[in-house]
Simulated scan of single mutants.
Amino acid sequence: MSYILLRYNGLYIFDDNLEKFQKIDLELNLDDLKEIYKNKLPEKVKNYIKENDIFIGQRFDGYKYTEDINIIRKALEKIGEEKINNKLFIDLLKEQISDSISKDEIIIQAISFLDDLNKSLNLFMERFREWYGLYFPEISQEIEDHEKFIRTIINSNREELMKKYNINKTMGGKIFEKEDLEIMNKISLKIKELYDLRKDLEDYIEKLMREIAPNLSEIATPKIGARLILLSGGLKELSLLPSSTIQVLGAEKALFLHLSKGIKPPKHGVIFNHPYLQKLPPKRRGAMARTLASKISIAVKADLNKKIIYQKLKEELDKRFKELSEK
């Protein structure tokens, strides 16, 4: 029986009294270090290990080890200071960072970008409507939806729009010239491209959500599911939350006012946008939100374990919605 100590500058094989040792120089590479960090012994090391050998303070799958502090201290004192390959450690750190990036982190960035894009679009549209209102205010009043408005006016002059919407006279200014209309049309085309980008991004988020969290996507909808992942910090973090917390995620301000000023607690956060809550009268939404949050909690745990159970959860959710609808 020998004591074994694997270090980055070689393999140390001690006798059973830790008095003498043999050092075997090994050229450990990045793949070897990754194996070691996973508690697996690299193949190039296995050839030197016998059946009853004991590793000192190191645990490897299928091998004996000891965590006796006296043995560890004595062995380290014997070998002295070791020379470490800094470049190898930097490469290992980069690999570990790269491996740690998960799909739900991509979802967090995508849904955050979508939020920023929506804010920018609203800001651009408010400014553009004011500008366009100087030219043709009636059409702006006729079409409330921003996206529909921008798609309607692109490449259409005032006379064409007046005829299309049966507007006989306009209060729009008469001073607009060709170059004024050209710049407004260019801006409207760029804003339309942003709306197209938003649609592409929403489709991408839905595809990604159905790939990594199919149960959550079916129960909460892909967009609400993505927002829950964003608010909790990740899929794993969301799975650790109780359903009562999931229910009010996104309603932190209202919850703070409840705790500080005693106003009524919020019944729901971002899950308020779920179709089932939207279709129910206000007095039934609290009960539906509790059921929905409970099913979301189960769905997320199933997604982490790569199990598909949304059909059963959806049936239970549909049943509860029907009960509340008929009350």
Rank of each mutant, 00 (worst) to 15 (best):
E144A: 14
K46P: 09
L181N: 08
L201N: 04
K207V: 12
D15W: 01
P282M: 06
K164M: 12
L5G: 08
F128M: 02
G80Y: 02
N122Q: 09
E19N: 12
E27I: 10
A287L: 10
F55E: 01
K327G: 15
K169W: 15
R7N: 08
E27Q: 11
I139K: 01
R284C: 07
F21A: 00
L255F: 00
K46N: 09
I205V: 13
A287F: 07
Y204R: 10
R73Y: 13
K64A: 10
K44P: 06
D25H: 15
D68F: 00
K312S: 15
G57R: 02
N118W: 01
L28V: 05
I24D: 05
F272T: 08
K327Y: 12
K264Y: 09
V248S: 00
K279G: 14
K192D: 14
K169C: 12
L259S: 05
L30Y: 03
T221V: 10
E218L: 06
K319Q: 13
L161C: 04
D53M: 07
E144V: 14
K327E: 12
L249P: 00
V300I: 13
S232P: 04
Y132I: 04
F256C: 02
V45R: 01
L230A: 02
S297K: 00
G172W: 02
G172I: 05
I101C: 04
I139T: 05
E315Y: 08
Y310T: 05
E206T: 14
F272E: 07
T291L: 13
I49A: 02
M125K: 03
K169L: 15
I154W: 01
A251H: 00
K38N: 10
L313Y: 10
K64R: 08
F124R: 11
T291V: 10
E159K: 11
I187T: 12
R7F: 14
L280S: 02
Y3C: 02
I56K: 00
L197D: 11
K50A: 13
E130F: 09
L123C: 08
Q109W: 09
P265H: 00
P265E: 01
K78C: 05
S217C: 11
S244R: 10
K178P: 00
L292C: 05
I167M: 03
I175P: 03
A251W: 00
L181S: 04
D116A: 14
R198S: 10
F149Q: 01
L201T: 09
I183N: 04
T170K: 01
G172K: 03
T291D: 11
F272L: 12
L235F: 12
F60M: 13
M1F: 04
L197K: 09
K307A: 10
Y37V: 13
I183T: 12
P265M: 00
Q311S: 14
D200Y: 14
E81G: 03
L11G: 09
Y276I: 09
K199F: 11
D68E: 04
M162Q: 11
M209L: 12
K261M: 15
F55K: 02
D53E: 05
Q96M: 15
A254T: 00
L6A: 01
K190E: 10
D31G: 13
I4H: 03
A289H: 00
I205T: 05
P242W: 01
L93V: 11
I309L: 11
D203P: 09
